[in-house]
Design a protein around this nucleic acid. Structure first.
Lengths: 247, 247
DNA sequence: GGACCTTTGTGTCAAAAATACACTTTGCGA
DNA sequence: TCGCAAAGTGTATTTTTGACACAAAGGTCC
């Protein structure tokens, strides 16, 4: 419990955010395009930055996210801490750090966060203050800066687990949505096929959806019914304890 | 992404460990007894300490745990990062920090870990190198140092969630155990009553237990059968994917 | 306008799992 | 030998899962 001279770490802390969105077809993640120092390639990273002194972790994550993407008031859930001593040691990463950080050699431990947003709520501005934050379909994401790939994978795993415990995913959809869209969303997150009829049966039995009068228009096939999410019933359900949300 | 002068945090990082054990009756947590500075009261805390430079987080957690309790090679799972700026601000905590730390005012962000051990594997030595680490039944734990109560609660929540996804808990029991003991363990972790017959049926159907010839002796009632955990079958099961571990 | 394409939307049956529930057995101690 | 305490066991009912195929609606294209 005593200080160990010259052994202790005096690192920096950052927050990195994995923001999931759904374009009614595929699951996407909001990534920052960075220019490499040579200025040729671009180079993708999670929105993240160092946190301030006296700033709570959650607050920092929200601030950083807002600064880099413009997103505001997002409920962020923690993925965990990522602190490998060599997590910043790839050559590309080192170059970037040297160009940008006061103390590029400092160890940085990052706290990963994730969230879900409706993609309509965030349309990246072509060349705005948000330095080229863009939605990338999750299957097209390859390597990322630092250990961000690992953070992303951790976030996706937590998201899957969470989906089996409580019905989420409503944040990822527009206010009015069809059951097919919700169905595709579940398949996109879980990465498996789900039987259409069984999915509908189970989802409707939860009794957290309200069917609207409105239907799709202008589609070259049978128009589908719109539904909306009933928050009241959802919260009641959470309180009375839940089971059976797994697919 | 640029450094923000004088705003950045240069905090310290610690690791705190929540170690669960089971005495065949109640769930226990391994806590450190600290003397308060006044030397009268004792004062309980999770085993934890600052991490070293260039030390991976998981390694640090294991080292710290070993230094404080003597436990070795424990598989630790992360609970998350706890970094409230005022998490060290209770008067008792401040006094302790002043007495013990070089820089008692530094902000400390801690990474919480948890694990399960068989209580036989760790019998606290009365006044040994392990500075009074003791098992405390979980219902008797009140306030703890810093935000350790919060870390403990987080760890217990994760443990419950995990128990519903995969059958664990074998680490918490002696090598040979009875189904009643396992039953009590599940009830202790989940905090609910489970029907005896249904519990047995389900547990046996998983086919990861082996019944031994041996039976209890010297008990003033029908002696129960001993079982042991079959690791081979368990790992096979994990690979083929699992469902139905929930109670 | 008719053929065609695409997606929506719906029901049943069988198998598996969950739940509720009570009495007999065993061994020790008095 | 009686009583006590915990172990161990089976069944009937309900609920949930999983597999599976075809009609309905609306646009497009000729």
């Amino acid at each position: 419990m005593h200080d160990k001279m010259n052994h202790e770490l005096n690192p920096r802390i950052s927050a990195d955010c994995v923001i999931f969105g759904f374009d009614l077809n595929k699951l996407n993640v909001l990534l920052i395009e960075r220019e490499t120092v040579v200025g040729l390639d671009t180079y993708k990273a999670l929105p993240g930055d160092l946190i301030f002194e006296d700033e709570p972790l959650d607050t920092a994550a929200n601030r950083v996210l807002n600064e880099l993407t413009g997103l505001e008031d997002i409920y962020l859930e923690q993925v965990g801490a990522f602190g490998d001593p060599d997590r910043l040691s790839k050559p590309q990463d080192r170059a970037w750090l040297k160009a940008v950080r006061q103390d590029p050699d400092a160890r940085v431990i990052t706290i990963g966060y994730y969230s879900l947003v409706g993609m309509n709520n965030y349309v990246p501005q072509p060349a705005s203050f948000a330095r080229a934050a863009t939605w990338i379909p999750i299957e097209e994401i390859g390597e990322l800066a630092f250990d961000h790939r690992q953070i992303l994978d951790g976030a996706l795993k937590k998201l899957k687990e969470k989906l089996n415990v409580q019905p989420i995913g409503f944040n990822l959809l527009p206010e009015k949505f069809t059951l097919s869209q919700l169905h595709r969303l579940y398949e996109a997150i879980l990465g498996v096929e789900l039987d259409k009829r069984n999915f509908r049966r189970k989802m409707l039995k939860m009794d957290i959806l309200e069917s609207l009068e409105e239907r799709q228009e202008g589609v070259p096939h049978k128009p589908s019914q719109f539904y909306k999410f009933n928050e009241q019933k959802y919260h009641d359900l959470l309180k009375t304890g839940f089971d059976n949300f797994a697919f």
